[in-house]
Amino acid sequence: MIEHLSAALGPLPPAAAVLCRQAQPVALAKGQALLHEGGHWQHLWWLERGALRLYYLDRDGQAANKNFYLDGALVWPITPALREQPVHFWVEALEPSRVWALPWGGWATATAGFAPWQALEHRVLAALLQDKMAREHAFLQLTATERYLALRTEHPDWLARIPLRQLASWLGITDVALSRIRRRLNPG
């Protein structure tokens, strides 16, 4: 974990480096939850390998995907509400995965005032806001086919790794509708 974070941020503050050396891997089986609705998100996770999905369950128990993360992703509770309140979503492995967890409180203390981490947080927040705005636009103004074409352009890695029904949920359509769109776009 220290190698990954050092590659992204440069030399880490001593306390952050010590914390990274103490991190333990978590092996997740396909379908295993890393965080459940109502739980408290208390870690920064580095997804060494695998695939994770963040999803909500509606009143009827139907899942709606919020986001996906693949190999090498850093995921953490980026807002105060995510750190302080129970979450309203699940985080689950879509395939066997290996995640390294750092206690968020320790990491936040160790990187307080560390400019490279603050810059990364700023870039991630900006990207998250941009993604949310683009997704809102897509749901309000694009057809399902246009949303799928945008997905192919923006996240080609997802197409190879994320199951069709999960992609369909993220697009806001059924897996049957997504299959039809794909067949129409790729005849034969």
Rank of each mutant, 00 (worst) to 15 (best):
P80E: 10
T109F: 05
W107H: 02
W90V: 12
G106L: 07
G106N: 10
P80A: 14
I78Q: 12
E92I: 14
A93K: 04
E95R: 11
G106T: 05
G105D: 15
I78K: 02
I78H: 08
G105H: 13
L102W: 01
A101G: 07
E92N: 09
P103C: 09
P103M: 04
G106E: 12
T79W: 10
A108L: 07
P103D: 10
E92S: 13
A108T: 01
H88R: 12
R83I: 00
F89W: 15
W100I: 00
W104K: 05
V91K: 03
E92Q: 15
V99P: 01
V87Y: 14
L102V: 06
T109Q: 13
E84Q: 14
F89D: 02
A93G: 04
A101Y: 02
S97F: 01
W107V: 00
V87C: 13
S97R: 04
E84P: 06
G105L: 10
W107A: 00
E84A: 15
G106R: 09
V91S: 07
A108H: 06
E84I: 02
T79F: 10
P96R: 06
I78P: 01
V99L: 08
P80N: 09
G105K: 12
G105C: 07
T109C: 03
P80K: 11
S97Q: 03
T109D: 13
P103H: 06
S97T: 05
L82M: 13
P80Y: 12
L94P: 00
L94T: 03
P86S: 14
S97M: 03
V87E: 07
W104L: 15
L94S: 01
W100A: 00
H88N: 14
R83K: 11
R83H: 03
E92V: 08
A93M: 04
G105T: 15
F89I: 05
I78N: 05
W100M: 07
Q85E: 12
A101E: 08
T79C: 10
Q85P: 02
S97W: 02
P103Q: 13
Q85M: 10
V99S: 05
T79D: 08
T109W: 07
A93F: 03
A93I: 05
E95I: 05
S97D: 03
A93W: 02
F89V: 13
A101L: 11
H88Q: 15
P96I: 08
L82T: 01
I78T: 09
E95F: 05
S97E: 02
G105W: 06
R98L: 13
P103K: 09
H88K: 08
V99N: 03
W107N: 01
E84G: 03
G106D: 13
G105V: 05
P103E: 14
V99W: 02
R83L: 05
W104R: 06
A108M: 05
A108Q: 10
W104I: 05
E84N: 12
L94F: 03
E95K: 11
F89M: 11
W104F: 11
S97G: 04
W107D: 00
E95S: 07
R98T: 15
A93N: 03
L94N: 01
E84K: 09
E92C: 13
A101I: 06
G106I: 07
L102D: 03
I78A: 12
G106A: 08
A108R: 09
E92M: 15
A81C: 06
